[in-house]
Amino acid sequence: MILDVQNISKRFGGLLALNRVSLSVQEGEILGIIGPNGAGKTTLFNVINGVYPPQNGQVTFRGENITGLPPFAIAQRGIARTHQIVRPLSELSVKENVTVGACFGREHLALGAAARVADEVLEFVGMADKRDMLASKLNVAQKKRLEMARALASRPLLILLDEVLAGLNPHEVTDVLGLIRKIREQGVTVIIIEHLMHAVMNLSDRVVVLDYGAKIAEGTPQVVSNDPKVIEAYLGDPKAAERLLEGST
């Protein structure tokens, strides 16, 4: 077990964004997290990587209690993430962006070594030709890929992917799905938040469903998508329910 989340609660004012959520992730697996908008998925990522300290509960990473550690300390321990709303370091080049990931991530590389890792990773995600561009000049799909490259360059043990497929065209989606599988093949554990049902159902070994901040289901994609509670959660959003059912086939 690489990550163990126990009884996490997070409250923002009157809103209970996470309500006693527990989940655990095995080394090398791809865990999908789904749920309607506002279910608390991104908040969960923010608690795992230290952006928000939880009100109660505990996050254990490789046997170490990392609850309440600042984000940089968690990043240095080997948890990398991407952001749902892309956050490139705008006035730095693509390569510099990725080098930052390599320099300050798990391996604390020196600048020269980090630059080599950055080149490798840019090759890996297929952005080598963009390396000297300013990050602000990329389009959204490229910025999403940059987020992944930056996270990968830190040589993480666990990577948190927050809606990396949203807004991509079908061709790009296929590309990125291939990329995620390759990431897993390299031995990196993956947690992915995704709205594209067929993608997450195809990709994930297991799926966790959040609704109103609580975990309402967990299991293989087949089990989850036939769970009446899950279908009910998506009833407010008939289209999503439809996609859910499509995804399971």
Partner: peptide, 25 residues
């Protein structure tokens, strides 16, 4: 031109992201 400088520029661009990338701001 150093790693330190790269960290500073990351902070300049976006301090929260820099922190998520492992920099102690």
């Amino acid at each position: 031109k150093s790693k330190f400088g790269l960290g500073l520029m990351a902070i300049r661009e976006d301090q929260d992201t820099a922190q998520v990338l492992g920099i102690d701001p």
